[in-house]
Amino acid sequence: MNEAKISKRDLNRIVLDYLILEGYQSAAESFAEEAAHDLPTNAAQQVENANIESRVQIREAVERGDIQTAIEMCNDLDPEILETHPALHFHLLTQSLIELIREGRTAEALTFARAHLAPRAERNEEFLKELESVMCLLVYGATPTGAKGKEQTGNSKKSVEINAPQSLLDLLSMQHRSLTASELNDALLSSMSLGGPRREPRLAGLMRLCFWGERVLDSHGIDFPRLTIPKGEGAGLDSSQSEAAKESK
């Protein structure tokens, strides 16, 4: 068997790549400093160029529902990003609309849709469909008294409860915000020169490869020793998802 060897330098690069892409600004900075002699010389430069902090803030803005701020920050960071990613721009605006509907600001929502979304949707079939389903939310209407609605929108300020089919309620979910945030983050990452269009850290790629291999072996009836990862503090990052996944089953 050929043994795979990986140098400390390469391991460090994988870790730095993770810290940058996942947005751990201060950790990335101190890593570039602390591991300097086992990293490429441009490591610190890379950290600086990655605009980690702004990306994190933009992401957080979207996840809070503050789309307007996110769009402004995006334009500060990279004035062309929204122009070159029309779908992304549309999704951000749609998310804006969803936030208005969530807060029960129906009139504003209508104005907003007419001013910003309708013109874009006219030119694009996909966009039109997406816009339509968001507008459907309005049809079900804001029923502030509908106490029986299951959807709890968590931390929203003045959320209204809407009785609508699940597919529409998904639009109001926090997940949908996260989707939009991820899409935006991906676009920002791709626009940076981090070695080709990058969407996820190399570490994720390694995990995919690793667990793909285990699965294929498994499917051939080989009970192979598994690689296990002890749970630590990171588990908090996806606890909600795994629960969501369980529920959806």
Partner: peptide
């Protein structure tokens, strides 16, 4: 983008990655 993001959502990748790091 959205399909991919949906995958990300569904995934339990972030926690493990953080702990690996």
């Amino acid at each position: 983008g959205l399909a991919r993001a949906a995958r990300d959502q569904q995934e339990g990748l972030r926690g493990a990655m953080a702990d690996l790091v």
